[in-house]
Amino acid sequence: MSSLNPHHPQTALITGASSGIGYELTKLLARDRYNLVLVARSADKLQQMADAFTDKFGITVKTIVKDLSDPNSPQEIFAELQQETMTVDVLVNNAGFATYGFFEQTDLMKELSMMQVNMVALTHLTKLFIPQMIQNKQGKILNIASTAAFQPGPMMAVYYATKAYVLSFSEALANEVKESGVTVTALCPGPTESGFQKRANMEQSKLVKGRQIMDAKTVAKIGYRSMVEGKPVVIPGVRNKLLALSVRFLPRTMVIQVVRSMQE
């Protein structure tokens, strides 16, 4: 595990880097010659990525194998980078997962882990890395939220709530740092082709079954461009934008019922 090239001015840290949107964002950062800190649970996949990106783009890549459901992980990641005197210029909080089903029947420990990964680890990592960004008067944070952030979601009640937190937190933080040279962007994709649905055990949900949904590469490109431009919120896809915005004008009870019918 090698240190990043000290002569390269920009370093990006990506959580959940080994698959889906996180993997596609990592490829875009590598293409633009960012040195990388890749965080995920899969050591083999991370090492494969590190070898490939080093060979193809001439960058240096550090891999950190961590499970962000462990409350100690964010501090351990930060401490490891501090020990190597490495500065993070771009933070991509991508790691996240969902559970599917009625709340009374879903697994409590999975939901507590989900809250830890989707909200707490994201907040903790941001808290640790943003002071240096503000001090340097530059930095970018990309938090992966969801169109789920815009309304409650029966049958995925906790997941929808975690993404509402991510969106609210990101928008507030973007406002706080707007004069500092640091930007915060919330990427709010709709259903996306990735391993997300399989892990959530929701492959039979009408939300994804039989529908043409966006692929992770397209979502990542839109999110990456928006992060570079410093946009506070981005919703990829016209249909997703319309759905997210329409909830503002419909009765809340109707919105919730529509979401439930889509989830079933």
Rank of each mutant, 00 (worst) to 15 (best):
E193M: 10
S205H: 10
I222M: 06
Y224W: 10
G230I: 14
A216W: 03
V228Y: 06
S205R: 06
Q212M: 11
M202T: 00
V219P: 00
Q197H: 15
G190N: 01
P232L: 09
K209I: 00
S226C: 13
K217N: 13
L187T: 05
F196S: 06
Q212T: 14
G190A: 04
K206V: 03
K206T: 04
F196M: 12
I213G: 08
R199T: 15
Q212V: 15
M214T: 12
Y224C: 13
K209M: 07
G195I: 08
K231T: 08
G210E: 10
T192S: 09
E193A: 15
Q204T: 07
E193Q: 14
G195A: 08
E229F: 07
A200S: 06
L187Y: 03
P232Y: 05
R199H: 14
G195M: 05
I213R: 13
T192Q: 12
K217P: 01
E229P: 00
N201L: 05
Q212E: 15
M227T: 12
R211Y: 02
N201Y: 02
T218F: 06
G230P: 11
K221R: 14
C188P: 04
P232T: 13
P191Y: 04
M227G: 10
M227C: 08
I213D: 08
K231E: 14
L187H: 00
R199W: 00
G230F: 14
R225T: 14
M202V: 01
L187P: 01
E203I: 01
A200Y: 02
D215I: 13
K206R: 11
P232K: 11
V208F: 10
M227N: 09
Q204R: 00
I213P: 12
